[in-house]
């Protein structure tokens, strides 16, 4: 219940934050993932830099074919945002189910992605719409497609001195939905699936079935090939090998991926 000793600075600009990160500080966004890890001493950063004072990291706006979401925008704001709701409903739905009401009021979209929990809902939802993040480091900005961001359990391709500044969500994914299954309401998803019906077909991405969010290639191929949702659901488990644990067997989780993909696909059409 007690974090290790740390130094704290609060950045008032992105440059300040990057300077701090370069000096070894860990970015502290909403703190809803990092703080519990620090309390259990599963994480012990010697220094943190608080991103909570950087106004330009908060907010949602249109930018051409994309929606730009500031990394420090809270789950609650994402869930309620009309632009996201119109163009990327699956992301709004995923955000509305993260944690609890209190956690959604503080946790952020950028923080969730950087934390890279293999049961996180937002990474799968954003993967379903083919989103990306903008990362900024001392050398400037780069765009990282969401599928390239999370590389493993709690691990991203961000450089040590980079922070996520923006999440980019492509428009045209209004017909999309997120379906998740968990035990208690507060719990992380055992499996969650985001489905988006775009111009180039159906995309489906799942959380909880690998060490990172993954596309459900079996489901996509079947549904895009004209199969019924039920048939496609049976194909959803192809190519995924979820780890058995207290929440269920590999077989059960594969099955859930199909059930949820079909549910999300159904909801996406509405």
């Amino acid at each position: 219940m007690i974090p290790s000793t740390l130094e704290y600075t609060k950045a008032s600009s992105i440059d300040e934050a990057i300077a701090a990160v370069q000096a070894g500080a860990r970015p502290l966004a909403g703190g809803q993932s990092l703080m519990p890890m620090m309390r259990l001493r599963l994480a012990a950063p010697g220094a943190v830099v608080d991103l909570g004072g950087i106004a330009e990291l908060v907010g949602v706006c249109e930018d051409g074919d994309e929606i730009a979401v500031g990394a420090m925008t809270t789950h609650r704001a994402v869930a309620a945002d009309p632009l996201i709701g119109e163009h990327c409903r699956v992301v709004a739905q995923a955000a509305s189910g993260v944690g609890s009401l209190v956690i959604r009021g503080r946790g952020t979209i950028g923080g969730s992605l950087a934390h890279a929990d293999p049961h996180g809902d937002l990474p799968a939802a954003i993967l379903a719409v083919g989103g990306a993040v903008i990362a900024r480091g001392p050398g400037g900005e780069r765009r990282i497609e969401i599928g390239d961001l999370i590389t493993s359990y709690l691990t991203t391709s961000l450089a040590d001195d980079e922070i996520i500044t923006q999440v980019r969500l492509p428009k045209g994914n209004g017909r999309s939905a997120y379906a998740k299954f968990h035990r208690r309401a507060i719990d992380w998803s055992i499996v969650g699936v985001g489905v988006a019906i775009g111009a180039d077909g159906v995309r489906a991405a799942a959380t909880g079935v690998a060490d990172r969010p993954v596309r459900l290639a079996g489901f996509e191929a079947a549904i895009n090939g004209g199969a019924s949702a039920e048939e496609a659901a049976r194909a959803a488990g192809e190519g995924i090998d979820p780890t058995a644990d207290l929440d269920g067997s590999t077989e059960y989780k594969r099955h859930l991926a199909g059930v949820l993909a079909a549910q999300a696909h159904q909801a996406a059409q509405g």
């Binding site: 704290y8 609060k10 502290l28 703190g31 309390r39 009401l101 009021g105």
Partner: peptide
């Protein structure tokens, strides 16, 4: 509403 265990006092 926030969880006061998930906020540093300095914040």
């Amino acid at each position: 509403p926030v969880l006061s265990c998930s906020v540093l006092a300095v914040q």
